[in-house]
Structure formats: C-alpha cells, structure tokens
C-alpha cells in the first residue's frame, strides 16, 4: 500500500545521485526489494516508471527490480537458510515463527527485509 511513497523516495535518491554526479541521462536503475517486505514488486515498478517517464533525464530509464530471497538464522542451533515453505492455505508472507531445523522460536531475519537503490547507470 505504501508503494507510492516508497517509489517517491527511490526517485528522490536516484535524482539526487544523478545530480551529484552531473549526469545528463539516467539509463538504468536497479532496486532491491526483500521477499519479506510488504512491498509489491509490481506496484513499485509501476510507480517508478510513472515518475521517471515525466522527466527528460529519466524518460529512457530501464527499471530493474531484484527480489532478495529471505534468509533466516536460528540462535539456538545455528541453522541458516531459507524459511520453511508455508502450507498451501497459508499466506505466503506468514510470519516466520520457528526454526525449520530445531523448531525453537527466536529466528532472526538476515536478508529479505531490504528495500534499496542498489545501482544506477548514468551518462554524462
């Protein structure tokens, strides 16, 4: 739901970085969205393309979104890996409660919660 404002923030970062580097043209924007955020890749892409299409400097920009898979770590047994696959009827983002190896709760999320501008390609 907050994809709109997140996209605005991404656009701010991109334009600021382009300006700091005296770029004339923004060709590519690479954004990373964690699998465990509540952000929809589709909606973020839509708004980014919408915002970029209004400025000559970014009109041609190609938006690339990388979905970062989730990585969790268990503090009890040291398990590190993907969270368990939820059942068919469960929401696929259902909170991760227990370690898939030892069953204890207390897993921490190491990856999958990020939302960042990773790279932009520009032309001077």
């Amino acid at each position: 739901m907050h994809e709109f404002s997140i996209a605005q923030q991404i656009v701010d970062v991109v334009f600021r970085t382009a300006q700091e580097n005296e770029a004339q043209l923004i060709e590519r924007v690479v954004v990373v969205i964690g699998e465990l955020t509540l952000l929809s890749e589709e909606q973020v892409r839509f708004w980014l393309q919408e915002f970029f299409s209004h400025k000559p400097i970014s009109r041609e920009a190609c938006v690339e979104i990388i979905v970062q898979p989730a990585l969790i770590r268990c503090s009890h047994c040291g398990f590190e890996g993907a969270p368990p696959c939820p059942g068919p009827e469960a929401h696929f983002l259902l909170p991760i409660l227990a370690c898939p190896r030892c069953g204890q709760s207390g897993v921490t999320i190491k990856e999958g919660r990020e939302c960042l501008v990773k790279k932009i390609t520009v032309k001077k």
Binding site: I10, R113, L116, K124
Partner: peptide, 18 residues
C-alpha cells in the same frame, strides 16, 4: 575520469526501510 557521453555505474546502498 569519464569521457563525455560515456555510461557509468554508480553503486549505492541506500536502504529506505532501514
């Protein structure tokens, strides 16, 4: 140094949720 008209990458790690 960049030539006029040359493309280059800028790496940045600005996490908006963080």
């Amino acid at each position: 140094e960049f030539q006029e008209g040359e493309s280059f990458d800028i790496e940045l790690e600005e996490d908006l949720l963080k």
